[in-house]
Design a binder for these strands. Structure first.
Length: 664
DNA sequence: AGCCTTTGACCAGCG
DNA sequence: TCGCTGGTCAAAGGC
């Protein structure tokens, strides 16, 4: 595949150049939502698109590349009408890009997704449709965080089987059924975390498939909290499931001279779980995660030079004003390759941003790089690279920015299925690179859940692209003066979320309090609430940067707080990609010790945190319910499916479990 | 020995 | 012209 540029291109395609988060959002989602779900005011219609009911393949990249894309497994989800429209849009853009760059953008294969959804029970969908009274989709749309959250359907959110009270039955019966069905359909019970509350319903797409390949999440949730009724009392426990969700996406932003620069985000989503295709990659990802963990996040992110499959030599590092973290400058070590990349990395080593300049005029080097350690390499190795990465069209220009972990692996696309799925080209480092992207688990749902991070970054990405890029897109690209290229920042949310998600497993436990007592005071409620909605992508007029870094588990707590509370700095909204974004119940509590996410264990150090949308803050009920942000890693014991099901179905089990839960 | 990272200094662009 | 900033150079050191 093409190198970075490709990614960029892809990214660009992915989202229409609209500054508006909404647009982005809608684009992401597709029309289905509109048709089906969310009743919105005209103005809001875009939001409706959230639901990706019928994913179609979007051609993100050149049709030409399709082969590769398919091979790679990169898949983009396209939705309904949106997809069509987008296709057109993209097609043109992509073609142009391809023409310039000489590379093809990977195509997202959404079919799997489609099938999934289609197969899904109507019931399942219903949740998406439902919007809680008083709740405006718009709100969700505006927040980057939100997107991500939404994107993540989780048991917690009730996305899964749990239907919002309003709509579907929450009752145990339905849950079970829905649960089963849901998972079955999905393949593996993969799911995406979603924010609590109805909002979750917005992104069915995420739930099902949205999960970006980069992220693997296995979650065992005890209950889905049904936020609808914000009323805690009504919260009900629903099925417990272990979900695996992996999402991988990367975001890539490109700067463009012309008029601006365009940022492209790319994300690829794998269909959740089930696909055999993806499954293996997941496994690899897991490995990678481990490796990465060992090696350090940075590496994984693609921050590392090699992570993206290319060899890089660091030639400078500097603290850039306005940037929290130092920026590292890398050059491609290939003889005649002028590609450079800038990587910003958090103190923890998490990559917050990656900007590529130029296109590789050579294939990726053979795997055995030392850095390549671990899974990353594996993925990278794919032959795909064979082709010249990119026609080095715009060498001079920093073509893309990736924020997120995966550093950019430009090639993400075809290499592996995973890659493709991960696609990240963009999202992050992790995203961007296949490598970077962490792959969670193998297809099997209940296997270990690796990282669950659902960061939700996705949504943002698109927005970012639009927002940031504005019109640019790749079209313009190119040529502009490098010197002036602005740095496009993408919404951190997206990236960050994605990134984190990939690596850090999170456990989200929602409990509803039927328990007989008043709702306990929320422990970390502040964080959530504190979240500043200011983050809205739209604001972006300002460039938004996405940070992909994954904070340490310990850091998560803080991160979240800081993230949301912190006003947009530098005029740009930065969201830190880390686990912080997420939320989860305090798994670390003794009571939860036994409730674990499969696959989570001591071995898995970090728990991904899902970004919370400000909306969540409103969901006070949630907090009250005992939802809390884990500061540390949650220790969870694996829960077998059987157990899960039992718990959901068996009152005795249910009580048993419940009894173990700490009383808030 | 080769490659890479680190890091201070230098250079260029911009206001 | 000066100061700021971002990007790059290149020596030193490590693996």
């Amino acid at each position: 595949m093409a190198g970075i540029d490709d990614n960029v291109a892809v990214i660009g395609d992915w989202v229409p150049p609209s500054p508006s988060p909404r647009a982005f959002f809608s684009a992401m989602v597709g029309d289905d939502i509109n048709s089906r779900t969310i009743p919105e005011s005209p103005g809001e219609k875009r939001n409706e698109g959230l639901y990706l009911g019928q994913p179609e393949q979007m051609t993100t990249g050149n049709s030409e590349k399709e082969d590769g894309a398919q091979t790679s497994g990169v898949q983009l989800t396209e939705l309904g009408t949106f997809s069509e429209q987008k296709s057109n849009f993209r097609g043109g853009l992509v073609e142009r890009i391809a023409a310039r760059a000489g590379f093809n953008a990977p195509r997202l294969n959404t079919e799997s997704i489609r099938s999934t959804e289609s197969s899904m029970n109507p019931e399942i969908r219903s949740p998406y449709l439902t919007i809680p009274p008083g709740f405006s989709p718009t709100t969700l749309l505006e927040s980057p965080v939100f997107l991500s959250n939404l994107a993540q359907p989780s048991p917690t959110t009730g996305k899964f089987s749990f239907f919002p009270n309003g709509n579907s039955t929450v009752g145990s019966d339905p849950p079970d059924k829905s649960k089963e069905t849901f998972f079955d359909n999905i393949d593996s019970s993969s799911f995406a975390f979603k924010p609590m509350g109805e909002s979750s319903s917005f992104f069915p797409w995420w739930n099902k498939q949205a999960i970006v390949s980069g992220i693997d999440v296995s979650v065992h949730s005890e209950n889905a909290f049904q936020s609808h009724g914000v009323e805690p009392a009504k919260a009900q426990f629903e099925s417990r499931n272990s979900l695996h969700f992996r999402a991988e996406f990367s975001k890539l932003t490109t700067e463009k001279d012309s008029g601006g620069f365009s940022v492209a985000d790319q994300r690829t989503f794998d269909t959740v779980g089930g696909n055999a295709e993806h499954s293996s990659p997941l496994a690899e990802q897991q490995d990678e995660e481990g490796d990465q963990g060992a090696s350090g996040d940075s590496m994984a992110a693609g921050g590392t030079p090699s992570e993206d499959g290319y060899n890089w030599r660091k030639y400078g590092q500097k603290q850039v004003k306005g940037s929290e973290y130092p920026r590292s400058y890398y050059k491609c070590t290939h003889p005649n390759c002028t590609v450079k990349k800038k990587v910003e990395r958090s103190h923890e080593g998490h990559i917050t941003e990656i900007i590529y300049k130029g296109a590789h005029n050579h294939p990726k080097p053979p795997l055995n790089r030392r850095s390549a350690t671990g899974s990353m390499d594996t993925q990278l190795d794919t032959p795909e690279q064979a082709g010249p990465q990119v026609g080095a069209v715009n060498d001079s220009v920093w073509a893309g920015t990736q924020k997120g972990t995966a550093a950019g692996t430009p090639d993400w696309r075809n290499d592996n299925v995973e890659v493709s799925s991960s696609a990240s080209g963009g999202l992050g480092p992790e995203f961007g690179n296949p490598y970077s992207s962490v792959q969670g688990q193998s297809g099997t749902p209940f296997e270990s859940a690796d990282a669950v991070d659902a960061s939700s970054t996705f949504s943002n990405d698109e927005d970012d692209d639009r927002a940031t890029h504005g019109s640019v897109g790749y079209d313009g690209e190119g040529e502009e003066s490098e010197s002036k290229r602005r740095k496009v920042e993408t919404y951190a949310t997206e990236m960050s979320g994605a990134t984190r998600a990939i690596r850090e497993p999170r456990v989200v436990v929602q409990t509803t309090s039927e328990h007989n007592h008043d709702v306990p005071a929320a422990r970390n409620s502040n964080h959530v609430n504190s979240g500043t909605s200011n983050a809205t992508p739209s604001q972006a007029g300002v460039a938004v940067q996405t940070h992909v870094h994954r904070p340490e588990a310990s850091q998560v707590h803080n991160s979240m707080t800081s993230r949301f509370e912190r006003p947009p700095a530098f005029g740009s909204f930065r969201q830190q990609p880390g686990p912080p974004a997420g939320f989860s119940f305090g798994m670390n509590q003794p009571g939860f010790a036994n409730m674990g996410m499969a696959g989570l264990g001591p071995g898995q150090p970090r728990m991904p945190v899902m970004p919370m949308h400000p909306y969540l803050a409103q969901q006070r009920a949630v907090n009250e319910m005992g939802l809390m942000m884990p500061k540390g890693e949650a220790k969870v014991e694996p829960v077998t499916e059987a157990n899960m099901s039992l718990s959901s179905n068996n009152p005795a089990v249910y009580h048993h479990i419940m009894s173990r839960l700490p009383q808030m």
